[in-house]
Design a binder for these strands. Structure first.
Lengths: 332, 332
DNA sequence: CTGTTAGCGCATTCAG
DNA sequence: CTGAATGCGCTAACAG
C-alpha cells in the first residue's frame, strides 16, 4: 500500500492534487488553509504515515533544534541527575539531545565537537576531559568561530570565552577539612584528581586554609589521581601498604571516595578506625547504613541551570550569561 | 576575517576559483583531484574553519548516521553500562547518538519515536515504558512502516516484529528463590514490578517453580510496583507495618531492592533478621561491606549486543536478527 | 486561499 | 581532472 520509502509532502501533494507549498502550509500554518483542503491533507498525511523530514526542514531554516552534550563519562554517578535535568528541559523546549561520551579522551572530545558542529546543533553543553590550566583543546578556535552558544559544566576550560555552571570548590574543601578537624582528626589524607586540575587545586586550597586555622599541629598528605575509582583505590592501597595511617581520608569526589572505601576494606580497616569525608554524596551510602559526611550539591539544579542558560542564549543571542556557582551543603 | 555564518563548500569554491563539485570531491574523494588543487582546497577549508553540514549531506544521501536511543529512565543504574556500551560502539562505527528519556511516560515515548523518525535515524534502540501484554503503543504501525531497524532492550513489546536483547527472567527467578530456600528461608516476600509486566510474571513463574520443588511448606507474598525505588519502599513499609515478617525479601530489580533496604532500615530490621536477594547487583553494596546475593547480568554485553545487532541490520537489511538472551550469574 | 519561484548545502550523474 | 545540471525535502517570498 505505502511506498517503500517514506512519504514526503510531495507524495501528499500529488494525492490531493495540490502543490507541496499548500501541504507544507497545512502542516505548519493550518489556519492559512481552507478547512476542507486542510482536512483532506491531514487525512492523506496520516494515511501515508507521513513524518516530516527534520533534516530538510532544518537545512532550510538553518537551525537544528538539536542540543549537544559532551561529557567525559556517562556512567559517573555525578552526571546522572545532570543529564536527566538537561534531557528533560531540552525536550520540554522542543530540543533533542545529541549525546557524546568522550571516555576521557581529548581526541574523542575533538571529534565530538566536530560532529556536533556538523549537525548544526543550536547549542552545546560541554564538560571537558580536563580542567588543567594547560589543556588547550585544538578545537577551541573552531568552536568560537562557530558562534553557537556553549555552556560549560563542572570543569572550566582555562581560557575559553564560554560561560558555565560550576561548583563552589574552595569552600567545599574548607568545609570538609573543618569538619574533619572538628571531629578531632589531625592527620588527613586527601585523595584528589589530577595535580594540575583547577578543581583539585581549589579544593586543596580550601583544605589548607582550614588546616592553617587550626591551632594544633596537623599533617596533610595528598594523593593525586584522575577522578576515577580504580586509580584512587590503587593510590590509597599503596599509601596504606606503606604503613601510613591517617586519622581521616578526604576524597575529592564520589568515585574517588568509592575507590578509597575499597582500599580501606582491603586493608581490613573499619569505619571506626578512620574518619571520612567526600565531596558529593556517595550514592546509596545512607541506605547501607554507612552515611559518609560530605558536601552535597544539587546536581539536578546544576544541569537545569546549564540547559536554561544555553536555551536562553539560543533564543536571545544578545543575552550575556555569566558563570553560575552551585554551592554545596554540608551533610553529616 | 571569517564570514558571520559558517563556511560552505561554495565559499571554498569561490576562494579557489573552482566549483563546488571539485571542492566536494576534494573533501570526499581526495584521490580524484589533482594534488595541487587538493592542497589548495584543504588549506582554504581549514582557513575558513569549514565544517561539513551533516544535515545537507544526510538529506542528499538519505541516511543520517544517527542512532536513536529511547529509555524509560536515564538514571536507572541498570542502564548505565548499557548506554555506555551503545555510545562507545556507535561512535566507533561512525554513528552519533540521539538520546531520549521517556520518564516512564507513553506520551513522551511516542513523541520520541516521532522525533527520531523525523531525524531519519538509521536505527533505533528501544526500551519501552511497559512490557505489559496490553501495552500497544499507537506509534507501532508507524514505526514498522518506517522500515528502519529497531532493536529492543530488556522490555519486550508484546507483539512487535522487532528483535531484542533480553534477560533470562524465569531462570533468574528460579535461581534466586532456590538460593533463599537453600538458606533456610521459607516465608518469602517478593517485591516486583507491575503485576502485568511480563518480566515480573516470568520471574515470578521461576520463583513459584522453585517453591513448588521445595518439600517443606513455604509461604509466598507478592508486592507489585513499577520497578522504581519509592513505590517499592512504600509497599514494603506498609507490608512491614502490618506486622508481617518474612524470612527473606526478594527484590526483582536494583531500584526495588534499594527501596526495600530503605524500608527495612526504617523498621529497624537488620541484615541478620532477614534474607535478601536481588536481580541485578545493587551498586556499591560490596564496597559498603553489605553484599547482597543476586543474579548479575553483564549489562555492558547487553548494550553491545543490541547496538551490534542494530548496526548489522543497518548495514545489511537482509540480515534477520533473532532475539538474544543475556543469562545471569549467581553471585552470593 | 493557492501556486510559482527559488534556494538551504551537498553530492551524483554525465559531459567535456 | 573539472564543470554543468539536477535534486534531496522543505519553506519563505511574492504573486495571483
Amino acid at each position: 500500500m505505502t511506498k517503500p520509502g517514506k512519504a514526503t509532502i510531495t507524495d501528499i501533494a500529488k494525492r490531493v492534487n495540490m502543490t507541496t507549498v499548500t501541504v507544507s502550509r497545512a502542516l505548519n500554518r493550518p489556519e492559512k488553509v481552507k478547512k476542507e483542503t486542510l482536512d483532506r491533507i491531514l487525512e492523506v498525511a496520516r494515511e501515508l504515515n507521513y513524518v516530516p523530514n527534520a533534516l530538510a526542514r532544518n537545512l532550510k531554516s538553518r537551525e537544528s533544534r538539536l542540543v549537544g552534550l559532551i561529557t567525559a563519562s556517562l556512567d559517573n554517578p555525578f552526571y546522572g541527575e545532570i543529564i536527566k535535568a538537561i534531557s528533560r528541559e531540552a525536550k520540554k523546549r522542543g530540543y533533542s539531545l545529541l549525546l557524546f561520551d568522550t571516555d576521557g579522551s581529548p581526541e574523542l572530545e575533538e571529534r565530538a565537537v566536530d560532529t556536533l558542529l556538523s549537525y548544526q546543533v543550536s547549542g552545546l553543553i560541554l564538560s571537558v576531559v580536563s580542567d588543567d590550566n594547560d589543556y588547550h583543546p585544538a578545537y577551541l578556535p573552531k568552536l568560537e568561530l562557530a558562534r553557537i552558544p556553549v555552556t560549560q559544566i563542572d570543569r572550566k576550560l582555562a581560557k575559553a570565552p564560554f560561560p558555565g555552571v560550576y561548583l563552589e570548590n574552595t569552600e567545599s574543601g574548607y568545609q570538609g577539612a573543618r569538619t574533619l578537624l572538628k571531629q578531632g582528626h589531625r592527620h588527613i589524607l586527601i585523595v584528589g584528581g589530577p595535580e594540575k586540575s583547577n578543581i583539585t587545586i581549589s579544593r586543596l586550597a580550601g583544605i589548607r586554609r582550614a588546616l592553617d586555622e587550626c591551632p594544633e599541629p596537623t599533617k596533610l598528605d595528598v594523593l593525586y589521581g584522575d577522578y576515577t575509582q580504580t586509580p584512587a583505590r590503587e593510590a590509597v592501597n599503596a599509601y596504606l601498604a606503606s604503613g601510613k595511617r591517617p586519622d581521616a581520608i578526604f576524597g575529592l569526589n564520589i568515585l574517588i571516595m568509592l575507590g578509597t572505601l575499597e582500599a580501606i576494606r582491603q586493608h581490613g580497616l573499619s569505619r571506626e578506625d578512620i574518619g571520612l569525608f567526600s565531596i558529593d554524596q556517595v550514592p546509596y551510602a545512607d541506605i547501607f547504613g554507612e552515611p559518609i559526611p560530605c558536601i552535597t550539591h544539587n546536581t539536578y539544579q546544576l544541569g537545569l541551570t546549564a540547559i536554561n542558560m544555553l536555551l536562553r542564549k539560543i533564543d536571545d543571542p544578545g543575552y550575556q550569561p555569566y558563570d553560575e556557582i552551585i554551592s554545596g551543603e554540608l551533610r553529616l
